[in-house]
Amino acid sequence: MQDLATLFVRAMFVENMPLTFFLGLCTFLALSRRLESAIGLGLAMIGVMGITVPLNQLIYTAVLAPGAWSWAGLPEIDLSYLNLIAFIGLIAGTVQMLEMLLERFAPSVHASLGVFLPLLTVQCAILGGSLFMVERRYDTVEALVFGLGSGAGFAIAVAMLAAVRTRLAYADLPAGLRGLGITFLLAGMMSLGFASFSQMGAP
């Protein structure tokens, strides 16, 4: 239990997806203009990552991992090179299903998230979460905790960035720095701040 809590905090702060691994930066920068859309994106990330990382872990161990087919008398089959296609297929399916479910049962949530949901298919942080899960050999429960933690970390980071950017709307910036430039600087400073969490994570 202790380990799982540590893993959650670690995935959320120390290994924050956008700020220390640079994953999911496209949506991180593009959708942080307004606080409401940033929060919507964050919630969608928590949901999608919490679902896809453990499901991909199940698929990986049951079908793709080396030796997964030994029950069928084929222990030498190693399909792990197919993991990209399998993972991205599952992510695309999950996003599509989530969109249909939300549309049917929670139309107001769907209306506020509508545009961003399909975009999550090509979100590097989501695929990255699944790939890290394989690299670090998490089991299913760990994968669930890791997915939820990373999603929550992304949500916090994007909401904070959006809050800062809203304030900056009235700042008098040099022309070349407006928009993208200043956002990078902000993200860099937030990344410096998050770097201090790694001291906490150190044993």
Binding site: L19, T20, F22, P174, A175, G176, L177, L180, G181, I182, F184, L185, A187, G188, M189, S191, L192, A195
Partner: peptide, 22 residues
């Protein structure tokens, strides 16, 4: 060698490019 420097460098690059091409 740390993560934040990449953000700062890219910000500088964007700024420089946009000063040349206003």
């Amino acid at each position: 060698r740390l993560a934040p420097s990449a953000f700062f460098l890219l910000a500088g690059l964007v700024w420089a490019l946009r000063s040349v091409l206003p």
